[in-house]
Design a protein around this nucleic acid. Structure first.
Lengths: 131, 131
DNA sequence: GTAGTTGCAAACATTTTGCGTTGTT
DNA sequence: AACAACGCAAAATGTTTGCAACTAC
């Protein structure tokens, strides 16, 4: 948990939530993380999951993807990268595409102070194309 | 209402909602549209606003921006363009930046069928910078 | 007359919060 | 001992839906 312990008290719940998130390449919802983490901490409540997701986001240890059709998704990979969202099945996948800092430069004008960007591609994912 | 009338029955409510959306450069939430359209149609219900936003999205007459901190926002400008989201005040603004179809080409690989992309910049908006 | 559309209110789904207890430092 | 974090359940938020009445065609 590195950074955290200087600012927050440690908790098994928080460690477990982050571990689950880091163990997958999917981009799970809060409910999925809850179900998964419960396998090891059966009494873990959903409220605790949300509270810890907030804390972890604040500390920059996860990405909060407010995209989805309904439920938000979370990404344990905080390095800059882009996503692909399937129009058909709704899955969120990582793109193997270099990050483009030059886009921020092009956008810095008209008085905007640009801190970064978010780029999502959408279309049909390989799995759905097969159907 | 151009296109619509061939597919749907016309309704004053739908026309008013689209008119309000087109009259602004802000990117209003459903609640804002409701409040605004109510000035002319006092009994307009929020349910009707949501139903019509769905219809209008389906017909390609608006963009549904599932971004925001909580409430979704809507954009009456359906031409391809990018947005800036202010980290400080949450406002969504249009960027004067040319659309980049080449990004889609670069992303077409690994079996993805790319239909388009969404690019949001974030940082601090001119108004918030002054404070 | 038929079927799309409405207003209203109830239902939903997701996320947030209050509170008394537990855990970490 | 102090106070962060917890579990639980209730509340808040944003959106959707069922239904009877209304409206466009």
């Amino acid at each position: 948990m590195e950074v955290i312990e200087r600012i927050r008290k440690r908790s098994r719940q928080r460690e477990e939530i982050l571990a689950v998130l880091r163990s997958t390449k999917e981009h799970p919802t809060a409910a999925i993380l809850h179900a998964e983490a419960r396998k090891r901490i059966p009494r873990l409540s959903l409220g605790t999951v949300y509270r810890n997701l907030d804390v972890l986001e604040e500390l920059g240890l996860l990405l909060h993807i407010r995209n989805g059709n309904s439920q938000d998704r979370f990404d344990g990979d905080v390095s800059p990268h882009y996503h692909f969202v399937c129009d058909s099945c709704g899955a969120v996948m990582d793109m193997r595409l270099p990050y483009r800092p030059d886009l921020d430069e092009a956008a810095t004008r008209d008085g905007f102070q640009v801190r970064g960007h978010r780029l999502d591609f959408h279309g049909t994912c390989p799995a759905c194309l097969k159907k």
